[in-house]
Design a protein around this nucleic acid. Structure first.
Length: 356
RNA sequence: CGGGGAGUAGCGCAGUCCGGUAGCGCAUUCGCUUUGGGAGCGAAGGGUCGCAGGUUCAAAUCCUGUCUCCCCGACCA
């Protein structure tokens, strides 16, 4: 995948606005649609709520011939949106990071192929962060670009969207486009659909030639004809995704981080302040670190119960306890946060499990 | 912008209706006990009651104004 430097995309949207206005390639109405927004006090401003325009313009410096295609560019960047009301902690904010990917193909067949592979990749992402079971590829409004776009919706009472899902087909439809026509398009029956609240954790769009036509992103094909590049866009909001994972996986004791995105793999708890206990715990801490295991070491001189409660609250995947008792028995006491399952292993067994 | 709620000790709150010495829990400090599931008992320190004005012998409490925060709704590539 060809990467475009993130810095290159760090153009202020206000600058972009000036560029478009002065270029005359877009009329005022278009500028209004893509940039202008008003605050409650009437102040007009321009916000970078999405980055199709800058990436399209940048790519016109990189794409000239069919030989330059396909290309794919992604960035992890801050979006600013004039949300009428920010709410639900990190789930809906006016400023948030987004991983967005844009695809550039010669034709619609190329776009379709990449679009499907991107959808599959996104589903794998959501599976790896632990919410695969309750995340559905969801049909949503396609807007001006195509009949449908797709969202990835995670079923949760904390969600703001409503979807109708078919668990057997592993598919869902956003309430906004839930009509008999859509159901028949997808070969689904109303009686098999279940209503649920959901959180949108990602979306993918076929942009077609909307932006390349408007902004002049063209390429020359094998026959020497000039043609517009066919585009797609694909987004995941990491902060909202993190909030969703927390919301979906947490239990009454606190957070439950899956291994793939946990801040630390191991939460090491020392019980007892005796010299041997301290030195054993510190030796294990260093050994784990040397082997590349992320470990959070609770060396506070407080009661055991408080350490257990805190480790449950923070939700690292594995809790490892070292105490007088475990040292005497020559084992580590390991508890899985997600299942509560407890086992006793040697240091070597734990290391080989975590570094394989 | 419409609707609702809250500002009182570091944190979380009661007290306000019906005016009369500023309270509780957690946290903090000290002492003794306890020590693998958020310790127990005893003692101590800590507050311009969001801000301004008014009524009153007396205001956290009543009246007027004002600021801030939160929630719901409208909005949402």
């Amino acid at each position: 995948m060809n990467g475009i430097g993130g810095q290159e995309l760090l153009l202020s949207t206000l600058q972009e606005k000036e560029v478009w206005e002065s270029s005359g390639r877009w009329d005022d109405a278009a500028v209004d649609v893509w940039f202008k927004t008003s605050f409650q006090n009437g102040t007009e401003t321009g916000l970078g709520w999405t980055h199709e325009e800058p990436i399209t313009r940048i790519m016109s410096n990189h794409i000239h011939s069919y030989r330059d295609l396909p290309q794919y560019a992604y960035q992890i960047q801050i979006k600013f949106r004039n949300e009428v009301r920010a709410k639900s902690g990190i789930m809906r904010t006016r400023e948030f990071p987004m991983k967005d990917l844009y695809s550039f193909n010669k034709d619609h067949a190329g776009l379709d192929e990449f679009y499907e592979s991107a959808a599959d990749a996104y589903l794998r992402v959501f599976k790896r962060v632990g919410i695969g079971e309750c995340t559905y590829k969801t049909f949503a409004s396609g807007g001006a670009f195509s009949k449908y776009s797709h969202e990835f919706q995670t079923i949760s009472e904390a969600g703001e969207d409503v979807v109708y899902l078919n668990e057997k087909e592993n598919i869902a439809i956003n309430k906004e486009v839930y009509t008999d026509e859509v159901l028949s398009d997808l070969g689904l029956k109303k009686k098999d659909m279940k209503e649920a609240k959901a959180i949108e954790v990602g979306n993918i769009f076929k942009l077609g030639t909307r932006f390349s036509d408007a902004l002049g992103l063209m390429y020359t094909d094998e026959e020497g004809n000039e043609k517009p590049v066919v585009m797609g866009s694909y987004g995941i909001g990491p902060s909202r995704l993190m909030g969703t994972v927390a919301e979906v996986l947490a239990d009454e004791k606190g957070l439950v981080w899956p291994m793939s995105i946990a801040p630390y793999t191991v939460h090491l708890i020392r019980i007892g302040e005796e010299e041997t206990t301290v030195s054993h715990a510190e030796a294990l801490f260093e050994t784990l670190q040397k082997n590349g295991v992320d470990v959070l070491y609770d060396d506070r001189d407080i009661r055991a119960g408080e350490k257990f409660a805190d480790s449950d609250l923070l939700g690292m995947p594995l809790r490892v306890v070292i105490s007088k008792k475990t040292i005497e028995e020559g084992v580590l006491e390991i508890t899985e946060r997600a299942t509560g399952e407890r086992r006793f292993q040697s240091q070597e067994e734990l290391l080989s499990e975590l570094t394989q």
